[in-house]
Design a protein around this nucleic acid. Sequence first.
DNA 1: CTGAAAATTTCATATGCCGGAATTTTGTCA
DNA 2: TGACAAAATTCCGGCATATGAAATTTTCAG
Lengths: 272, 272
Amino acid sequence: MAEAAAPISSLRRALSLVRIIANGDPAGLRLKDIAEAAGCTQPTAHRALQDLMAEGFVEQEAGGKRYRLSLDFFVLAAKAGQANGLRDLARPVLLRLAASLHDTIFLLVRHGYDAVCLDRVEGPFPIRSFTGDIGGRVPLGLGQGSLAILAHLPEAEQEEVIRFNVPRLIDRGFIDEAGLRAAIAEARRLGWVNLNTGLIPGMAGLGVPVFDARGYPVAALSIGTLAERLGPERLPSVVHMLQTEAAKLGAEINPFDPSLRYPSRSLSKAEP
Amino acid sequence: MAEAAAPISSLRRALSLVRIIANGDPAGLRLKDIAEAAGCTQPTAHRALQDLMAEGFVEQEAGGKRYRLSLDFFVLAAKAGQANGLRDLARPVLLRLAASLHDTIFLLVRHGYDAVCLDRVEGPFPIRSFTGDIGGRVPLGLGQGSLAILAHLPEAEQEEVIRFNVPRLIDRGFIDEAGLRAAIAEARRLGWVNLNTGLIPGMAGLGVPVFDARGYPVAALSIGTLAERLGPERLPSVVHMLQTEAAKLGAEINPFDPSLRYPSRSLSKAEP
DNA sequence: CTGAAAATTTCATATGCCGGAATTTTGTCA
DNA sequence: TGACAAAATTCCGGCATATGAAATTTTCAG
């Protein structure tokens, strides 16, 4: 299968070690396996890992030999979720919504071909979602908030994402291209997304896009709840509430910070 | 003043760039400032940053020149909070507690001289806490959960932490050594921590330690709420609930995984 | 529009990285 | 518990590659 056979600098190799560890067994990986996965010798991997440990990116369980990501890394990364300050801006919004609606609220941001869950406040009902936890990632188009973003992207960009994501979505067994396009059209027509379409039985959700000052859908607010809690009588008010908060949030996004619009590099690797 | 004047490998320097960026202005840092802070020339910093970008650890706002941590980094790190799988184990616990108590619940783990907020589920009341958000860090001893951990550490270790942390706590203007020792004694006597002591006016909280199979306080559960919600009639039942859940959680921690006990390296840098 | 500061590229040099082989440590199976 | 195999770590010579001065281009401020 396509093996990442990139002959690269020592730095890049070391960073790839971090990825390998992150994606490996949460209990930690052995040097041998890391070296093998990275395509380098054990001494090389070993020395890189020493440095990674010295800088606090990686740690070993006390006494043990297995390498895992360090808690320092976790702390460090909390500061990476601040793209545009959006997370802090959105926090009161999420809290308000959760308090009013008594359901779980998600904040998603677009990141390349994916939507990333930046934050989440849960209601009293147990919810299963695609995005899952904070830091979770789903292909654009899968899930309400994610679809809300995709549906409101500029035409050309939307096409690019669709082309890239359809195989990924099919792989996950959820939707084909026709279905996706239909869902996008519907989302665009309504201005929001309502998927009761039993992707997860008994669950339902709503997503609305968050536009920045340029009308670009940088993020989405979504709600996840039990299907029975989104019946015809409650649904309109929930939509209204989400849209109101999304509009307020969008207005607060610094219009002079052009970031978040076009992620700078080739982004998330596909998982086809 | 104390300048990190460590002549180190290229890898370590590059990793230090990540730290510099993480601790800098969230809007991003310029190459010149990064190079200066890292103590290397601009070309060197530049090429390291190119690699960091290529690996998705760092990104530039579209078109701009400033470097910031990438969202990929955020995604990656979500997997770093899994020390011991504690986060997943604790999630249902947090949800249960939040649902029953209608208050904000924190999960803290010990990390060197600090406690790190691994997860948090909020109740309907707006709360100010020391730890703040997920990924937040406080010196052991500051805050209810954090103090609960410190109070139940083995004597020698506790002394070491106290010696290290007292200056940091004083710097924050919160407590002196005598006060800390009194609080520790009280916490140990009760088995839990109750700080209504107006550190934050109107706020109150409770913390209970979570012990692993060896009786080592690896973590803490805590509740943060309005002072008026922890009156004498409600307090005992809240304590009981937290303790019950803490005990259950402790029992689930894999007793054969010795990690989390002694963080492997020198840990969090002081901020004196 | 202009000039200064920052970013990026070039290039010769030597530094410090690389992997094979040797040595020590660890984990496993009797 | 002992012994063996596998993994981890250290050593070391050769050379790839990171480095910083200088030159060039781009950006930004006034």
